[in-house]
Simulated assay, not measured.
Amino acid sequence: MNQISAVPGRAALPLLDTEVLRTFVAIAESGSFTRAARLVFRTPSALSMQIKRLEEMLGQTLFVREARQVRLTAEGEMLLGYGRRLLKLNEEAVTQFLAPSLEGRVGLGTTDDVGTRILPGVLSQFARSHPAVQVDVVVGSSVEMLKRLDSGELDLALVTAGMNGQTTIGEVVHSEPLVWVGREGGVAARRTPLPVALANHGCPWRKIALDVLDHAGVDYRVAYTCEHCAGQEAAMLSDLAVAPFPLALIRSPLRRLEQGSLPPLGDYQVALVRRDGLGSAGEVLAERVVEAFNDLRS
């Protein structure tokens, strides 16, 4: 039965049930009532009834039912974002009162391109839920983060991995296009040899870029080498070079170079690597990081 929210001067609205939201999110993420039923330990018919009542309550069709799968409607995609946030908030509230108190220290390493996107929100939420846990963050190259992980300085590391299809260490949590980028109205992309700004040796972006340029026979020179992607950005802003750069990080006056002007780079991946024997505080933080990347895709 739906609970009713009564606000003076406003028509009462039904409240979304967290169990129904959990069912909805499971179906959306698995693409199947049958697979979702196994995840929430209910029958497919029970799930179908829950979704029917939810659709009736909202007055919207949430799924398009096809022969072997279901997919979200536009309204379903909108509800998925709300549903994930509501479930996360519910978990955070319950954890605050019922979960065993976490204590200790977690060392988290990340590359700068990743850290600026998801860590502020993750660390803020984690600090509210588990104030007794100290999180120390280190920003550096993927190679450096893995070395620190092996030495025991870090418990978790977010590292840049290779292209899709390649074997990577850890759990792949994100994938996005790597594209050629230069300054709007700049001339660097028209120079010969092509001036390229790259990260230091060991960075997968560097290897991907040099491999495709060599394979395509493009005449180039490494004009700028830096530790962080902020250095690549500076080189592009100064119109000193073009660079391989994540599509999501492009900001004016930088722009993606016309497709076909340079060989495509494909997608790159971000992996979360855990230290052997990771404690409970580290595992909880790892879960929050994975959820944050899931939210980027929703």
Rank of each mutant, 00 (worst) to 15 (best):
V64D: 14
G217S: 06
S101W: 08
P246L: 13
R297C: 00
T95K: 03
V290D: 00
E66R: 14
P195C: 08
G162I: 03
V94R: 11
A99Y: 08
L272D: 01
P14D: 10
M78T: 14
D112Y: 09
R221A: 08
I250G: 08
D219W: 06
E91N: 02
A36N: 02
R274P: 03
Q60D: 12
F33C: 00
R256F: 03
P246M: 09
L210G: 03
S175H: 05
Q269P: 02
T110V: 03
E103Q: 14
G9Q: 06
Q69P: 01
D214E: 15
D239A: 12
E227Y: 05
R38C: 00
E144P: 02
G162T: 04
A216T: 11
G152D: 09
G121P: 00
E233W: 12
V218Y: 05
G162E: 05
E287L: 04
R297D: 00
V222F: 07
L249Q: 13
V7H: 13
I51C: 02
H215D: 15
T61I: 10
R190S: 11
V284C: 12
M78W: 14
F293T: 04
A286H: 01
S32K: 06
A286T: 01
A189I: 07
L108F: 04
V94F: 03
L54F: 08
D112K: 09
R53C: 08
G107F: 05
L154W: 11
A281I: 09
M49T: 13
T168C: 10
Q269L: 08
A216G: 11
S141T: 15
L72P: 15
H215C: 10
Q166D: 12
G277W: 14
G202D: 06
S238N: 15
G104V: 04
E171V: 08
H174E: 04
V173H: 05
V70Y: 00
D150K: 14
Q125E: 13
G76C: 10
F97R: 15
S141H: 03
Q125F: 01
V159R: 02
V122Y: 01
R148K: 13
L86S: 03
G182H: 05
Q166S: 12
V138L: 10
E287G: 08
R297F: 00
G152P: 05
V7N: 11
H228G: 12
E56C: 03
R68W: 07
E56G: 10
G170S: 07
M236W: 06
R221V: 14
G186S: 09
T160E: 12
S280F: 07
L119D: 01
L154M: 14
M145S: 15
V40S: 00
L146A: 06
L98R: 12
A132S: 14
R128Q: 15
E184R: 09
A216P: 10
D219C: 11
V133K: 02
L86M: 11
H174R: 03
V242D: 04
G83D: 02
